[in-house]
Design a protein around this nucleic acid. Structure first.
Length: 479
RNA sequence: GGCCCCGUGGUCAAGCGGUCAAGACAUCGCCCUUUCACGGCGGUAACACGAGUUCGAUUCUCGUCGGGGUCACCA
């Protein structure tokens, strides 16, 4: 059997959208699963839409996400060039050949005539006017330098059918397809033409793309047939939606891959999550590395209905990845975010990191989880109240002075020692552990919730700050 | 509007004629616990609707409704 070759063919018009990335991912996964090749090709035939950094963003995103292409503009390959704007002569030659084969024809109609074909709603189809030009007339106009395009000659009757690997049999009547432009007057091909020529020339066996091409695929097949080429297998993918009726798009300000990374979602989690949008593994295991995805990917798991991008689930997955990281891995990723916290530089880094690792799902949450350390100030004494701990402000008044004494006399200011000392205090006073622990933690932080208990907070703050804060808390209570 | 496609809980998503209709996220409750988080356990929650076909339909067919896509010298 022939080697599987898939391709990702983005148009460099801006950022990498989640949907595009998923298309690339599936193409990559499928090729790798089959032991084949994955190719990157740039479809930049629309000079008007070209965006400067877009090409670099495509390279960077793919690389960053771990999606490696075997052939492409910046890595080479034997089917290059992989940038369509550099293949103009190729398309022109094939366009002429298609004209000879009867699959296309020259069209000299000007904009006005084309406009006149449309009704008041701007809807109207080309009427094959130039198809009926004689060979001599065409030669004459060509020789006279009349601007032209080459149009595909769609049969007036009949229909085209193909088997999509996810959608099944798709049929479209030829009468519903227009004689589209294949070669523009600027000499560059339209997508409709370039993708067919390139996919064939580059040996693409499986075309994986968005479902927006579902109903235009029959016209591509017409070209494959006219040239006598083997049609590729088609795998159309349902869109990723923002909600039930809007597609996810950068234009609407929806998150792109780089936006998500910037927020601190773990890359593997993003890839893992988007793999799950529209595809489901045979097993119930959802958390998978890229390698595991490669191993488990199969077309039969592809879904044909649109899926909505659900950030909460991405968050969860991201959190799963964070929790399983080593302290070193986490530190490397978390540092830029930690530096944005008010607590940065004022407390031991490792302690801060250790405290936060099991409590964040997205790295950008780090500052807000730690800032409170530097925001200590007057607080509502009602915080001392906790039903389950059987604690309140009155208890605090009794606990705090004693706790201060204990802390002040403590040599070893480490979590375990602190905990032991505080619990011993509770015993001595005939109180519940929680009464002491709760009051101390509140006095130390002024917060109902903190990323650690009383002893952990005390260790982090250090003896000096602990004593200061307890004094302040006591003063407020008695004042 | 024509044509193409889609329709299982709030979301993702198994299912492929006979199931008490999986699982995950979210949500709610309980447990664990020095608060929170983590972790453990459990609950609420779905086959869009209507006709067929069939002994039997979430699964097959048709229609309705709903949604998406496409009708460019954009991809």
């Amino acid at each position: 059997m022939k080697e599987v070759r898939t391709r990702f063919a983005p148009s460099p018009t801006g950022y990498m959208h989640i949907g595009n990335l998923r298309t690339a991912l599936y193409g990559y996964l499928y090729a790798k699963k089959q032991g084949g090749k994955f190719i990157l090709r740039l479809e930049d035939t629309d000079s008007k839409r070209y965006v400067e950094d877009a090409v670099q963003i495509i390279y960077d995103t793919l690389r960053d996400a771990g999606i490696e292409y075997d052939e492409g503009p910046d890595v080479g390959g034997e089917y290059g060039p992989y940038i369509q704007s550099q293949r103009a002569e190729i398309y022109q030659a094939y366009a002429k050949k298609l004209v000879e084969l009867g699959g296309a024809y020259y069209c000299f109609c000007d904009k006005e005539r084309l406009e006149s074909l449309k009704d008041e709603n701007g809807v109207g189809r080309y009427d094959k006017h130039c198809l009926h030009l004689s060979k001599e007339e065409v030669e004459a106009k060509l020789a006279a330098g009349v601007p032209y395009v080459i149009r595909q000659n769609i049969p007036a009757e009949g229909s085209g059918t193909y088997e999509d690997l996810v959608y099944g049999t798709v049929t479209v009547d030829y009468k519903d397809i227009e004689d589209g432009v294949l070669l523009k007057s600027d000499g560059l091909p339209t997508y409709n033409f370039a993708n067919v020529i390139d996919d064939h020339l580059m040996g693409i066996t499986h075309v994986i793309r968005g479902s927006e091409y579902l109903s235009s695929t029959p016209k591509y097949n017409l070209m494959y047939d006219a040239f006598g080429w083997k049609r590729p297998a088609y795998i159309h993918l349902p869109p990723i939606m923002k909600n039930s009726h809007e597609k996810l798009s950068k234009r609407n300000g929806d998150a792109s891959y780089q936006d998500l990374v910037a927020k601190g979602y773990i890359k593997q989690a993003i890839i893992n999550y988007i793999a799950l949008l529209g595809w489901s593994p045979k097993s119930n295991q959802e958390k998978m590395t890229l390698d595991e995805l490669k191993e488990n990917f199969s077309l039969s798991g592809l879904n044909k209905s649109p899926s909505i991008f659900d950030e909460p689930k991405l968050r969860w997955l991201s959190g799963e990845y964070i929790r399983e990281m080593s302290a070193e891995e986490f530190a490397a990723l978390a540092m830029p975010f930690l530096q944005k916290s008010k607590a940065y530089g004022k407390y031991p880094e490792e302690k801060l990191l250790k405290m936060v690792q099991p409590r964040v799902e997205v790295l950008e949450e780090i500052p807000s989880k730690l800032d409170f350390l530097e925001e200590y100030g007057p607080f509502d004494p009602a915080l001392y109240f906790n039903k389950k701990m059987k604690s309140d402000a009155e208890i605090a008044k009794k606990v705090l002075p004693a706790a201060r004494e204990v802390l002040a006399g403590l040599e070893n200011f480490e979590n375990a020692a602190l905990y032991e000392a505080l619990v011993a205090l509770a015993q001595r006073e005939g109180m519940k552990n929680g009464q002491v622990l709760w009051c101390v933690r509140i006095a130390l932080t002024g917060r109902e919730n903190t990323p650690g208990g009383a002893s952990e907070m005390a260790e982090l703050l250090g003896k000096e700050r602990c004593l200061q804060r307890i004094d302040a808390a006591l003063a407020a209570l008695n004042g």
